[in-house]
Write a protein that binds this DNA or RNA. Structure first.
Lengths: 160, 160
DNA sequence: CATATATTATAAGCGTGCTTACTATTCAAG
DNA sequence: CTTGAATAGTAAGCACGCTTATAATATATG
Protein backbone atom coordinates (compact mmCIF):
# COMPACT_ATOMS: atom_id res chain seq x y z
CA UNK A 1 0.00 0.00 0.00
CA UNK A 2 1.97 2.95 -1.28
CA UNK A 3 -0.16 5.87 -0.17
CA UNK A 4 -1.86 5.84 3.19
CA UNK A 5 -4.62 8.12 1.93
CA UNK A 6 -4.88 9.96 5.18
CA UNK A 7 -6.22 12.80 3.11
CA UNK A 8 -9.66 11.32 3.01
CA UNK A 9 -9.32 9.65 -0.34
CA UNK A 10 -10.24 6.41 1.38
CA UNK A 11 -13.74 7.77 1.57
CA UNK A 12 -14.07 8.33 -2.16
CA UNK A 13 -16.11 5.19 -2.70
CA UNK A 14 -18.52 5.95 0.08
CA UNK A 15 -18.84 9.56 -0.95
CA UNK A 16 -19.56 8.99 -4.61
CA UNK A 17 -21.99 6.24 -3.80
CA UNK A 18 -23.83 8.37 -1.29
CA UNK A 19 -23.86 11.45 -3.48
CA UNK A 20 -25.29 9.52 -6.41
CA UNK A 21 -27.92 7.86 -4.28
CA UNK A 22 -29.04 11.10 -2.69
CA UNK A 23 -29.19 12.93 -5.95
CA UNK A 24 -31.30 10.18 -7.44
CA UNK A 25 -33.56 10.30 -4.43
CA UNK A 26 -33.96 14.04 -4.68
CA UNK A 27 -34.74 13.81 -8.35
CA UNK A 28 -37.43 11.30 -7.76
CA UNK A 29 -38.83 13.35 -4.91
CA UNK A 30 -39.09 16.58 -6.89
CA UNK A 31 -40.27 14.80 -9.98
CA UNK A 32 -42.70 12.37 -8.46
CA UNK A 33 -45.59 14.45 -9.79
CA UNK A 34 -44.52 13.47 -13.27
CA UNK A 35 -44.36 9.81 -12.36
CA UNK A 36 -40.90 9.36 -13.80
CA UNK A 37 -37.94 7.80 -12.07
CA UNK A 38 -34.44 9.16 -12.40
CA UNK A 39 -33.50 6.45 -14.87
CA UNK A 40 -36.58 7.18 -16.94
CA UNK A 41 -35.68 10.86 -16.97
CA UNK A 42 -32.24 10.11 -18.27
CA UNK A 43 -33.74 8.05 -21.03
CA UNK A 44 -36.38 10.62 -21.83
CA UNK A 45 -33.80 13.37 -22.28
CA UNK A 46 -32.02 11.20 -24.79
CA UNK A 47 -35.15 10.29 -26.70
CA UNK A 48 -36.33 13.88 -26.96
CA UNK A 49 -32.94 14.91 -28.29
CA UNK A 50 -32.64 11.95 -30.65
CA UNK A 51 -36.10 11.14 -31.88
CA UNK A 52 -36.40 7.80 -33.56
CA UNK A 53 -33.21 6.43 -32.09
CA UNK A 54 -32.93 2.63 -31.97
CA UNK A 55 -32.84 0.84 -28.65
CA UNK A 56 -29.36 -0.49 -29.18
CA UNK A 57 -28.06 3.00 -29.86
CA UNK A 58 -29.91 4.25 -26.80
CA UNK A 59 -28.14 1.68 -24.69
CA UNK A 60 -24.82 2.87 -26.08
CA UNK A 61 -25.60 6.50 -25.38
CA UNK A 62 -26.78 5.84 -21.85
CA UNK A 63 -24.00 3.34 -21.26
CA UNK A 64 -26.34 0.71 -19.94
CA UNK A 65 -27.19 -2.71 -21.32
CA UNK A 66 -29.81 -3.15 -24.04
CA UNK A 67 -31.92 -5.26 -21.77
CA UNK A 68 -32.07 -2.43 -19.25
CA UNK A 69 -33.29 -0.10 -21.98
CA UNK A 70 -35.85 -2.66 -23.02
CA UNK A 71 -37.38 -2.89 -19.60
CA UNK A 72 -37.26 0.83 -18.97
CA UNK A 73 -39.11 1.34 -22.24
CA UNK A 74 -41.69 -1.26 -21.30
CA UNK A 75 -42.78 0.85 -18.39
CA UNK A 76 -42.42 4.15 -20.19
CA UNK A 77 -44.48 2.96 -23.14
CA UNK A 78 -47.15 1.86 -20.71
CA UNK A 79 -47.05 5.29 -19.12
CA UNK A 80 -47.45 6.99 -22.48
CA UNK A 81 -44.01 8.59 -22.51
CA UNK A 82 -42.62 6.95 -25.61
CA UNK A 83 -43.69 5.02 -28.68
CA UNK A 84 -41.96 2.07 -30.26
CA UNK A 85 -42.19 1.94 -34.05
CA UNK A 86 -40.90 -0.68 -36.41
CA UNK A 87 -38.14 0.33 -38.77
CA UNK A 88 -39.34 -0.52 -42.25
CA UNK A 89 -35.80 -1.06 -43.49
CA UNK A 90 -34.67 -3.39 -40.71
CA UNK A 91 -37.42 -5.24 -39.00
CA UNK A 92 -35.26 -6.08 -36.01
CA UNK A 93 -35.11 -2.42 -35.08
CA UNK A 94 -37.59 -0.57 -32.87
CA UNK A 95 -37.32 3.17 -33.25
CA UNK A 96 -38.18 5.16 -30.13
CA UNK A 97 -40.19 8.35 -30.30
CA UNK A 98 -41.22 10.70 -27.48
CA UNK A 99 -44.90 11.48 -27.12
CA UNK A 100 -46.28 14.99 -26.83
CA UNK A 101 -46.52 14.41 -23.12
CA UNK A 102 -42.78 13.81 -23.08
CA UNK A 103 -41.92 16.87 -25.07
CA UNK A 104 -44.02 18.99 -22.77
CA UNK A 105 -42.42 17.51 -19.68
CA UNK A 106 -38.96 18.04 -21.04
CA UNK A 107 -38.74 21.67 -20.07
CA UNK A 108 -39.94 20.95 -16.58
CA UNK A 109 -37.38 18.22 -16.26
CA UNK A 110 -34.55 20.56 -17.09
CA UNK A 111 -35.86 23.04 -14.61
CA UNK A 112 -36.08 20.49 -11.82
CA UNK A 113 -32.61 19.23 -12.65
CA UNK A 114 -31.28 22.75 -12.37
CA UNK A 115 -32.85 23.10 -8.95
CA UNK A 116 -31.38 19.85 -7.71
CA UNK A 117 -27.92 20.71 -8.94
CA UNK A 118 -28.08 24.17 -7.45
CA UNK A 119 -29.17 22.70 -4.14
CA UNK A 120 -26.48 20.05 -4.26
CA UNK A 121 -23.65 22.43 -5.05
CA UNK A 122 -24.73 25.21 -2.72
CA UNK A 123 -21.78 26.71 -0.93
CA UNK A 124 -19.23 25.89 -3.60
CA UNK A 125 -17.63 28.56 -5.73
CA UNK A 126 -17.83 28.46 -9.50
CA UNK A 127 -14.22 27.41 -9.57
CA UNK A 128 -14.77 24.58 -7.14
CA UNK A 129 -17.79 23.42 -9.11
CA UNK A 130 -15.71 23.26 -12.24
CA UNK A 131 -13.11 21.19 -10.46
CA UNK A 132 -15.73 18.82 -9.12
CA UNK A 133 -17.13 18.35 -12.61
CA UNK A 134 -13.68 17.86 -14.01
CA UNK A 135 -12.96 15.31 -11.30
CA UNK A 136 -16.10 13.37 -12.07
CA UNK A 137 -15.37 13.41 -15.78
CA UNK A 138 -11.89 12.19 -15.02
CA UNK A 139 -13.17 9.36 -12.87
CA UNK A 140 -15.62 8.26 -15.52
CA UNK A 141 -12.94 8.47 -18.16
CA UNK A 142 -10.31 6.67 -16.13
CA UNK A 143 -12.63 3.85 -15.22
CA UNK A 144 -14.23 3.48 -18.65
CA UNK A 145 -13.38 -0.13 -19.27
CA UNK A 146 -10.14 0.63 -21.06
CA UNK A 147 -8.26 0.76 -17.79
CA UNK A 148 -5.01 0.86 -19.75
CA UNK A 149 -6.36 2.86 -22.65
CA UNK A 150 -5.72 6.53 -22.12
CA UNK A 151 -7.22 8.10 -25.20
CA UNK A 152 -8.73 11.58 -25.12
CA UNK A 153 -12.17 11.13 -26.55
CA UNK A 154 -14.34 13.56 -24.72
CA UNK A 155 -16.28 14.58 -27.75
CA UNK A 156 -17.04 11.58 -29.86
CA UNK A 157 -19.60 9.04 -28.95
CA UNK A 158 -17.22 7.20 -26.70
CA UNK A 159 -17.60 9.35 -23.63
CA UNK A 160 -21.33 9.54 -24.30
CA UNK B 1 -34.08 29.04 -14.72
CA UNK B 2 -31.60 31.59 -13.48
CA UNK B 3 -28.37 30.04 -14.66
CA UNK B 4 -28.20 28.50 -18.06
CA UNK B 5 -25.63 26.00 -16.87
CA UNK B 6 -23.61 26.25 -19.98
CA UNK B 7 -20.71 25.39 -17.73
CA UNK B 8 -21.59 21.73 -17.81
CA UNK B 9 -23.42 21.65 -14.52
CA UNK B 10 -26.36 20.19 -16.38
CA UNK B 11 -24.34 17.03 -16.64
CA UNK B 12 -23.86 16.69 -12.90
CA UNK B 13 -26.54 14.05 -12.55
CA UNK B 14 -25.25 11.93 -15.38
CA UNK B 15 -21.67 12.29 -14.21
CA UNK B 16 -22.21 11.31 -10.61
CA UNK B 17 -24.41 8.44 -11.61
CA UNK B 18 -21.86 7.14 -14.09
CA UNK B 19 -18.92 7.63 -11.78
CA UNK B 20 -20.62 5.74 -8.99
CA UNK B 21 -21.65 2.90 -11.26
CA UNK B 22 -18.21 2.51 -12.74
CA UNK B 23 -16.50 2.58 -9.40
CA UNK B 24 -18.84 -0.07 -8.09
CA UNK B 25 -18.18 -2.15 -11.17
CA UNK B 26 -14.45 -1.82 -10.77
CA UNK B 27 -14.65 -2.77 -7.12
CA UNK B 28 -16.59 -5.86 -7.90
CA UNK B 29 -14.19 -6.76 -10.69
CA UNK B 30 -11.07 -6.45 -8.59
CA UNK B 31 -12.67 -8.03 -5.58
CA UNK B 32 -14.54 -10.83 -7.23
CA UNK B 33 -11.99 -13.31 -5.92
CA UNK B 34 -13.25 -12.57 -2.43
CA UNK B 35 -16.83 -13.10 -3.46
CA UNK B 36 -17.97 -9.81 -2.00
CA UNK B 37 -20.03 -7.16 -3.74
CA UNK B 38 -19.36 -3.47 -3.29
CA UNK B 39 -22.28 -3.11 -0.92
CA UNK B 40 -21.06 -6.04 1.13
CA UNK B 41 -17.63 -4.48 1.33
CA UNK B 42 -19.06 -1.28 2.66
CA UNK B 43 -20.90 -3.19 5.30
CA UNK B 44 -17.89 -5.31 6.17
CA UNK B 45 -15.71 -2.28 6.76
CA UNK B 46 -18.28 -0.99 9.21
CA UNK B 47 -18.63 -4.28 11.03
CA UNK B 48 -14.90 -4.78 11.42
CA UNK B 49 -14.56 -1.29 12.85
CA UNK B 50 -17.62 -1.59 15.08
CA UNK B 51 -17.81 -5.17 16.23
CA UNK B 52 -21.10 -6.12 17.78
CA UNK B 53 -22.98 -3.20 16.30
CA UNK B 54 -26.74 -3.62 16.05
CA UNK B 55 -28.39 -3.82 12.65
CA UNK B 56 -30.37 -0.65 13.14
CA UNK B 57 -27.22 1.28 14.00
CA UNK B 58 -25.53 -0.24 10.98
CA UNK B 59 -28.32 1.04 8.79
CA UNK B 60 -27.82 4.49 10.28
CA UNK B 61 -24.08 4.43 9.71
CA UNK B 62 -24.39 3.20 6.14
CA UNK B 63 -27.36 5.46 5.54
CA UNK B 64 -29.46 2.72 4.04
CA UNK B 65 -32.71 1.23 5.25
CA UNK B 66 -32.76 -1.49 7.91
CA UNK B 67 -34.34 -3.92 5.51
CA UNK B 68 -31.44 -3.48 3.11
CA UNK B 69 -29.03 -4.29 5.92
CA UNK B 70 -31.10 -7.30 6.80
CA UNK B 71 -30.89 -8.81 3.35
CA UNK B 72 -27.25 -7.96 2.89
CA UNK B 73 -26.53 -9.72 6.16
CA UNK B 74 -28.55 -12.76 5.08
CA UNK B 75 -26.16 -13.39 2.25
CA UNK B 76 -23.06 -12.43 4.19
CA UNK B 77 -23.97 -14.70 7.05
CA UNK B 78 -24.44 -17.52 4.54
CA UNK B 79 -21.04 -16.73 3.09
CA UNK B 80 -19.43 -16.90 6.50
CA UNK B 81 -18.51 -13.22 6.65
CA UNK B 82 -20.48 -12.22 9.70
CA UNK B 83 -22.30 -13.69 12.69
CA UNK B 84 -25.58 -12.54 14.17
CA UNK B 85 -25.81 -12.86 17.94
CA UNK B 86 -28.70 -12.11 20.20
CA UNK B 87 -28.26 -9.29 22.65
CA UNK B 88 -29.00 -10.69 26.09
CA UNK B 89 -30.21 -7.33 27.36
CA UNK B 90 -32.60 -6.58 24.51
CA UNK B 91 -33.88 -9.61 22.71
CA UNK B 92 -35.00 -7.58 19.71
CA UNK B 93 -31.41 -6.71 18.92
CA UNK B 94 -29.07 -8.73 16.72
CA UNK B 95 -25.45 -7.85 17.26
CA UNK B 96 -23.23 -8.27 14.20
CA UNK B 97 -19.71 -9.68 14.47
CA UNK B 98 -17.12 -10.19 11.76
CA UNK B 99 -15.63 -13.66 11.35
CA UNK B 100 -11.91 -14.33 11.18
CA UNK B 101 -12.31 -14.59 7.45
CA UNK B 102 -13.61 -11.05 7.44
CA UNK B 103 -10.84 -9.66 9.56
CA UNK B 104 -8.26 -11.24 7.31
CA UNK B 105 -9.93 -9.90 4.17
CA UNK B 106 -10.11 -6.43 5.64
CA UNK B 107 -6.53 -5.52 4.82
CA UNK B 108 -6.89 -6.73 1.26
CA UNK B 109 -10.05 -4.70 0.90
CA UNK B 110 -8.30 -1.52 1.89
CA UNK B 111 -5.55 -2.27 -0.54
CA UNK B 112 -7.91 -2.89 -3.42
CA UNK B 113 -9.83 0.25 -2.55
CA UNK B 114 -6.63 2.24 -2.68
CA UNK B 115 -5.89 0.88 -6.12
CA UNK B 116 -9.32 1.74 -7.45
CA UNK B 117 -9.19 5.26 -6.08
CA UNK B 118 -5.72 5.84 -7.45
CA UNK B 119 -6.85 4.62 -10.84
CA UNK B 120 -9.99 6.74 -10.73
CA UNK B 121 -8.22 9.95 -9.78
CA UNK B 122 -5.23 9.51 -12.03
CA UNK B 123 -4.27 12.77 -13.67
CA UNK B 124 -5.66 15.01 -10.96
CA UNK B 125 -3.44 17.03 -8.67
CA UNK B 126 -3.62 16.66 -4.90
CA UNK B 127 -5.34 20.00 -4.76
CA UNK B 128 -7.94 19.00 -7.31
CA UNK B 129 -8.56 15.74 -5.49
CA UNK B 130 -9.20 17.62 -2.30
CA UNK B 131 -11.69 19.84 -4.07
CA UNK B 132 -13.45 16.86 -5.58
CA UNK B 133 -13.74 15.24 -2.16
CA UNK B 134 -14.96 18.48 -0.67
CA UNK B 135 -17.51 18.79 -3.44
CA UNK B 136 -18.83 15.30 -2.86
CA UNK B 137 -19.04 15.87 0.87
CA UNK B 138 -20.90 19.09 0.18
CA UNK B 139 -23.35 17.36 -2.12
CA UNK B 140 -24.03 14.64 0.40
CA UNK B 141 -24.44 17.20 3.14
CA UNK B 142 -26.66 19.52 1.10
CA UNK B 143 -28.95 16.74 0.01
CA UNK B 144 -29.16 14.99 3.36
CA UNK B 145 -32.91 15.21 3.78
CA UNK B 146 -32.77 18.41 5.78
CA UNK B 147 -32.68 20.51 2.62
CA UNK B 148 -33.18 23.63 4.68
CA UNK B 149 -31.19 22.46 7.68
CA UNK B 150 -27.61 23.59 7.42
CA UNK B 151 -26.13 22.28 10.63
CA UNK B 152 -22.86 20.40 10.74
CA UNK B 153 -23.91 17.03 11.99
CA UNK B 154 -21.67 14.49 10.39
CA UNK B 155 -21.80 12.23 13.39
CA UNK B 156 -25.22 12.20 14.96
CA UNK B 157 -28.24 10.71 13.33
CA UNK B 158 -30.07 14.00 13.15
CA UNK B 159 -30.39 14.03 9.41
CA UNK B 160 -32.35 10.85 9.40
C1' DC C 1 -29.41 -20.83 -52.73
C1' DA C 2 -27.64 -22.35 -48.16
C1' DT C 3 -25.13 -21.82 -44.28
C1' DA C 4 -22.62 -19.14 -40.81
C1' DT C 5 -22.11 -14.96 -38.34
C1' DA C 6 -23.97 -10.16 -36.67
C1' DT C 7 -27.15 -7.63 -34.63
C1' DT C 8 -31.64 -6.26 -32.31
C1' DA C 9 -34.57 -7.00 -28.95
C1' DT C 10 -36.27 -9.74 -25.25
C1' DA C 11 -36.53 -13.42 -21.31
C1' DA C 12 -35.01 -15.14 -16.89
C1' DG C 13 -32.94 -14.47 -12.76
C1' DC C 14 -29.78 -12.10 -9.32
C1' DG C 15 -28.08 -8.02 -6.25
C1' DT C 16 -29.12 -3.71 -4.10
C1' DG C 17 -31.98 -0.24 -2.72
C1' DC C 18 -36.58 1.41 -1.73
C1' DT C 19 -41.65 1.58 0.39
C1' DT C 20 -45.13 -0.45 2.98
C1' DA C 21 -46.68 -3.63 6.26
C1' DC C 22 -45.96 -7.03 9.78
C1' DT C 23 -44.11 -9.51 14.31
C1' DA C 24 -41.68 -9.38 18.50
C1' DT C 25 -40.03 -6.94 22.09
C1' DT C 26 -39.32 -3.00 25.12
C1' DC C 27 -40.72 0.91 27.67
C1' DA C 28 -43.81 4.45 29.40
C1' DA C 29 -48.39 5.56 31.42
C1' DG C 30 -52.45 4.80 33.59
C1' DC D 1 -50.89 -5.35 35.53
C1' DT D 2 -52.58 -3.56 31.19
C1' DT D 3 -52.78 -0.71 27.53
C1' DG D 4 -50.31 1.85 24.03
C1' DA D 5 -46.40 3.78 21.73
C1' DA D 6 -41.77 3.15 20.12
C1' DT D 7 -38.06 0.23 18.42
C1' DA D 8 -35.53 -3.99 16.02
C1' DG D 9 -35.84 -6.93 12.65
C1' DT D 10 -38.09 -9.13 8.70
C1' DA D 11 -41.38 -10.12 4.53
C1' DA D 12 -43.27 -8.84 0.14
C1' DG D 13 -42.93 -6.59 -3.86
C1' DC D 14 -41.09 -2.99 -7.06
C1' DA D 15 -37.23 -0.34 -9.85
C1' DC D 16 -32.88 -0.61 -11.98
C1' DG D 17 -28.72 -2.42 -13.28
C1' DC D 18 -26.28 -6.61 -14.42
C1' DT D 19 -25.12 -11.45 -16.77
C1' DT D 20 -26.40 -15.18 -19.57
C1' DA D 21 -29.32 -17.19 -23.00
C1' DT D 22 -32.80 -17.10 -26.96
C1' DA D 23 -35.73 -15.66 -31.00
C1' DA D 24 -35.92 -13.06 -35.06
C1' DT D 25 -33.89 -10.79 -38.61
C1' DA D 26 -29.81 -9.17 -41.63
C1' DT D 27 -25.76 -9.86 -43.87
C1' DA D 28 -21.68 -12.14 -45.46
C1' DT D 29 -19.64 -16.25 -47.41
C1' DG D 30 -19.37 -20.92 -49.41
Amino acid sequence: MPLMNLDGTERLGFLIHDAARMMRKRFEMLGSSYGLSAAQWRLLVRVVKDEGVAQARLAELLEIEPISVSRLLDRMEEGGWVERRQDAADRRVRMIFPTDKSRQAFGAIKSVAGEVFEQALAGLSQEQRQTVLLGLKTIVHNLSDGEASCQHDNEKGAAR
